[in-house]
């Protein structure tokens, strides 16, 4: 086993046990995240079933171009992240640095587009609260849709922000040090997290932007 020569924390017998434990721990963390988002998806499902017409009307007020662009941005960032994981495994430091920083940059681009989208929607009085305006007869139930929209995309954006910060820090570490050349587990875990954030968006996109777009 080549791994056994690598450094490992004292509670582990060898580096491969440490790596397996860390990866398994990350998967469990992602399971908790699914349950965390799950409650919001449950709320969305319950109210969409209860108020289908209002949700369809509200969904037509979302900005599809922004949402579609952002979907593409996140999917590309997942690809660059996957390439970064491969670069770390192949111990190619420059490629790792570039790919991590590119992933972080795409994350920032996603957040910027999201920010402009929020600004447009707020100016159109779609933010739930005192200033919310929507055509009757769907006003109150459309407010529920937009509450769920801001809530779920907001929590998702928080996760993207955390990911961007961690990936950017890792990018600088890859640039400045050879830490990941000795042990690439951290890049692996970061990759898992980033793909998870991406998958959440893959579910959010149709639920928010594509409710009865055809009519």
């Amino acid at each position: 086993m080549p791994d056994s020569t690598l450094a490992h924390a004292p509670q582990f017998d060898d580096a491969s046990q440490q790596r397996e434990s860390a990866t398994f721990g990350m998967w469990i963390f992602l399971a908790t995240e699914i349950l965390f988002f799950g409650a919001m998806f449950l709320g969305y499902t319950a109210y969409r079933l209860a108020y289908p017409a209002a949700f369809a009307a509200a969904s037509r007020h979302t900005l599809l171009a922004f949402g579609a662009t952002n979907t593409a941005v996140l999917l590309i960032s997942s690809a660059t992240m996957a390439f970064a994981v491969r670069a770390a495994r192949e111990k190619r430091r420059t490629a790792l640095t570039v790919r991590l920083l590119l992933t972080a940059a795409l994350g920032v681009l996603f957040l910027c587009i999201k920010g402009f989208e929020y600004a447009r929607e707020i100016s159109e009085h779609l933010l739930p609260g005192a200033s919310f305006q929507f055509d009757q007869p769907y006003a109150s139930h459309a407010e529920m849709f937009f509450y769920l929209y801001f809530l779920m995309t907001g929590v998702h954006a928080l996760h993207v922000t955390i990911g961007v910060v961690l990936i950017a820090i890792s990018g600088f570490r890859a640039w400045r040090t050879d830490a990941f050349m000795r042990n690439d587990t951290a890049v692996d875990l970061l990759g898992l997290y980033w793909h998870f954030v991406d998958i959440i968006w893959v579910f959010l996109f149709p639920l928010i932007y594509l409710v009865e777009r055809h009519s």
């Binding site: 908790t32 109210y47 809530l151």
Partner: peptide, 27 residues
Amino acid sequence: PVLAITLTLMALERLFGVGIFNPAMGG
């Protein structure tokens, strides 16, 4: 995690007056 998000939703509703448990919005 479900408790965490549930308490968060309750707190948001308390803070901003809008939320998924609010009957005024069909909650």
